[in-house]
């Protein structure tokens, strides 16, 4: 097994782990950071699948602009999630 095939196994597992962490966290700002980490790992996966255009678009839109919009929305409301 080459190093690239190992990366193809590790990075999707990390993407799923980051998504689960984002769902489970109670602090919304930390959850947004977890979503941004998931997006960045997804962009890395696109890059090692030889699609650098999609990787740049994913890193720009998914990891930066979406995070900025979420942070703006969280600062307009409360930071911690209450009991439902």
């Amino acid at each position: 097994m080459t190093f690239l095939e190992l990366l193809h196994i590790i990075i999707p597992i990390l993407i799923v782990a980051a998504s689960v962490v984002a769902v489970l966290l109670k602090d919304l700002l930390a959850a947004v950071i977890a979503v941004a980490a998931m997006s960045l790992l997804l962009s890395l996966e696109f890059f090692i699948l030889q699609a650098p255009d999609v990787a740049i678009a994913q890193a720009g839109v998914g990891a930066c602009l979406t995070t900025a919009i979420f942070i703006i929305a969280i600062r307009a409301t409360k930071r911690m999630e209450g009991e439902v």
Partner: peptide, 29 residues
């Protein structure tokens, strides 16, 4: 740079624009 070299290197108008817009959004935040 990504916009200006869109016909030579990976990237193009949309990708470079997204990077520059995220720089502006960082200043805004």
């Amino acid at each position: 740079y990504v916009i200006a070299h869109g016909h030579l290197t990976p990237g193009g108008g949309f990708q470079g624009g997204a990077i520059a817009a995220s720089a502006c959004a960082m200043i805004l935040v």
